[in-house]
Amino acid sequence: DLSALRVEEVQNVINAMQKILECPICLELIKEPVSTKCDHIFCKFCMLKLLNQKKGPSQCPLCKNDITKRSLQESTRFSQLVEELLKIICAFQLDTGLEYANSYNFAKKENNSPEHLKDEVSIIQSMGYRNRAKRLLQSEPENPSLQETSLSVQLSNLGTVRTLRTKQRIQPQRTSVYIELGSDSSEDTVNKATYCSVGDQELLQITPQGTRDEISLDSAKKAACEFSETDVTNTEHHQPSNNDLNTTEKRAAERHPEKYQGSSVSNLHVEPCGTNTHASSLQHENSSLLLTKDRMNVEKAEF
């Protein structure tokens, strides 16, 4: 173990290094160091905050020279020094078990990766560091076993998940096959086929009936047209017969005018059967003409 005197000496050296690497504005270890034209180094955030307070150039807090945003430059070497100082402080805390008085939040800088452990060898070769390295080497064999167990647990979990997924996939297939086998029997399929065939026959029977009705309507229309044509021909046949009657009536009127007047009046009210309204109107006109002729003949006879 380190003596108290040596611990104090190391602590004083760390404090001196820390004062050199402090920012003059925030009085902390410089984060993202930036250098000016006057070779003074500050935190990048502190300098941008200072420049944004005034429009135009501002003055350096140490030498009062003008500073602009374009004049600022990043210093990589200074950032490396800060990183190495942080590593020294971490090693000091691990070796002594004491917390550094002016320690900052170094938890963000710590890294437990194997590459980081290899890099620590180049920091300080001390008894405390050696003991700590031995402890780490002793704890390393235990870690692979834990990793193997965790991997086995994960693989077993994956296997159970896969088996569950396969079961879920197989179950719908089985149910679907069961439904297909038990849903419709052979008799049901035959009945469905016969039902479809009967429906098709009914459709075939319905369509000819409609065509037959249309044919019957067409035949009825044709018969009505033929009947009207026969009526017209009958009226045409009746007209010459009426003319013959008129000639006979004229002759009778010349011989017996008194008797014919009474008979002509009675004939006005008689309509021949089986004739249309057109034929009756023609008869009325003929009878009126005959009456006028008879009157003329009677007057001539009187004179």
Rank of each mutant, 00 (worst) to 15 (best):
Q261F: 06
Q205K: 03
R255W: 01
G56I: 01
K293R: 01
T68S: 05
L27S: 07
N102W: 14
G262K: 11
L48E: 15
V10Y: 12
V298F: 00
L217I: 05
D39G: 08
E120D: 14
S126I: 11
L137D: 07
K54N: 09
V190G: 06
L72P: 10
R255C: 12
T163Y: 05
Q283L: 14
C60F: 14
E299I: 01
K293N: 02
L85H: 05
C38F: 15
V153F: 09
L289M: 10
K37T: 08
N52V: 14
P141D: 12
H256D: 03
V13W: 10
C26H: 13
D244S: 01
P240V: 14
S79G: 04
D1K: 07
N276C: 13
E142Q: 09
P240H: 02
I30H: 09
I67Y: 08
L51T: 08
T68E: 14
S71F: 13
I14F: 13
V121P: 03
Q283H: 12
S241I: 03
P257D: 07
N143G: 10
P144F: 07
N191D: 01
D200N: 11
C63H: 15
L146G: 11
S152T: 01
S197N: 07
E226H: 15
A16Y: 02
R255K: 08
L203T: 13
Q147G: 08
E148V: 08
L2W: 12
G159Y: 06
F106T: 14
C38H: 14
R132G: 11
R295P: 05
N52T: 08
L245E: 15
K259M: 01
N12I: 05
S185L: 02
I206N: 07
I41E: 01
L164F: 10
A16F: 14
E32N: 09
L181F: 00
P240C: 15
I89T: 11
E74S: 13
L146V: 11
P141R: 07
T68R: 06
R130F: 04
N157T: 05
I41D: 12
P240A: 15
T277A: 05
I206F: 01
P257F: 00
H278L: 02
A91R: 15
R130W: 00
E9W: 05
E302K: 07
L117I: 05
E28W: 11
D200W: 00
D244H: 07
F92S: 13
N15I: 11
Q201P: 09
K19D: 12
C38A: 15
V161L: 09
K37C: 03
Q11D: 12
L203K: 08
L146D: 14
A193F: 00
V232N: 13
S281H: 04
R255G: 08
A91V: 13
K69F: 00
E120K: 10
M296R: 15
I41A: 09
F92N: 14
R6H: 07
V7Q: 09
C38K: 15
A224K: 07
C90T: 04
M127Y: 13
V161H: 11
V34W: 07
Q11G: 14
G182V: 09
I215M: 01
I25F: 04
P57H: 06
R70M: 11
T233S: 09
K167Y: 00
R70I: 09
A133Y: 06
T76R: 11
E140N: 12
Q93S: 06
G210A: 02
K31V: 13
N157K: 12
K108Y: 06
M296C: 02
N131S: 12
L151C: 14
T166Y: 00
I215R: 14
K192F: 14
L50M: 07
T36C: 03
K250N: 04
M17C: 06
I89C: 10
S219E: 10
T189L: 14
K55D: 11
N246F: 01
N143D: 09
I67S: 07
L27D: 08
K54S: 09
I89L: 09
I41N: 03
L81S: 14
Y195L: 08
P257L: 08
E28H: 11
I89V: 08
D39A: 10
T275C: 04
L137A: 04
N105M: 15
T149D: 12
E229F: 00
E32I: 09
K167T: 00
D95V: 15
Q138L: 05
H40R: 11
I67H: 06
A193I: 00
E258W: 07
N105T: 04
E214R: 02
D66L: 05
E148F: 10
N52K: 09
I206C: 02
F106M: 15
K134E: 14
D213H: 12
V153W: 01
K259Y: 00
P57C: 02
K19Y: 02
C90I: 11
L204C: 04
T235R: 02
C46H: 02
L245N: 09
L48V: 04
N246S: 10
E271V: 01
Q138D: 07
R174T: 15
E254G: 06
F42L: 06
Q73S: 12
F78C: 05
C43D: 09
P257C: 00
S35H: 12
C23R: 15
A101V: 04
Q18W: 04
K87T: 05
K37Y: 08
D188H: 01
N52S: 07
R251H: 09
L27P: 10
T36P: 00
A279Y: 13
Q201S: 08
G159M: 04
C38Y: 15
G262T: 05
Q154F: 05
D39I: 09
L85R: 13
D244I: 02
S35A: 07
E84M: 10
V10M: 11
